[in-house]
């Protein structure tokens, strides 16, 4: 099929917008200690960007760019990063101690380890949710289409991704 997924209008709009959504997710996560947001909100927004790409291009083409295994690895790396920040605190006294200089209030370089921990949580939550969306799109839909074919029914062509 030439245009897997949705029409080229949706695909081109997604090409333009998805990167900005991902950058916004990182911004939301990194400024979590100054304004509403933080790592959890940023991770969910990242997953929303991935959902947009998945809906527009379909599971197969998205998986060719970003495989599920990569998501697993990045997910685990985020979790390990969070634990590493906690262990850094252990080096400075107690587990999860805020060992970096606190900095000046209301400046970006403030809050010590909070911005770093937000980044780790962004990576962890974002990669985990992107991976599960990919798995649902690929395993769920592809097998469903194949099963419908096997039963002799013609599934919705929109699903052929």
């Amino acid at each position: 099929m030439k245009h897997a997924g949705m029409t080229s209008i949706v695909q081109n709009t997604t090409r333009l917008v998805a990167g900005f959504i991902a950058v916004f997710a990182v911004y939301i996560a990194l400024t979590g200690h100054l304004s509403p947001g933080g790592g959890f909100a940023g991770g969910v927004i990242l997953a929303a960007a991935a959902a947009l790409v998945l809906l527009a291009f379909g599971g197969r083409r998205t998986q060719a760019v970003l495989s599920e295994g990569t998501c697993h690895v990045v997910d685990a790396a985020g979790a390990l990063g969070f634990v590493a920040i906690a262990l850094g605190g252990l080096g400075a006294g107690v587990f999860f101690a805020n060992f970096l200089p606190l900095g000046e209030l209301h400046r970006f370089a403030s809050g010590g380890t909070i911005a770093l921990a937000n980044l780790a949580i962004l990576v962890k939550v974002g990669a985990g949710l992107v991976g599960v969306l990919l798995a649902l799109a690929v395993y769920g839909t592809a097998r469903y289409v194949a099963a419908e074919r096997a039963r002799g029914e013609s599934p919705d062509p929109f699903l052929e991704i």
Binding site: F96, N98, T113, I114
Partner: peptide, 30 residues
């Protein structure tokens, strides 16, 4: 904590242990 957002101060500094546990729950459910 040096963070203007009190929610983040609680989430990632005062109660970071809770956050570690909750991150584990997300990991396991996924």
């Amino acid at each position: 904590t040096g963070a203007a957002n009190a929610v983040m101060a609680v989430l990632l500094d005062y109660r970071a242990y809770d956050t570690l546990g909750e991150a584990t729950i997300i990991f396991v459910s996924i």
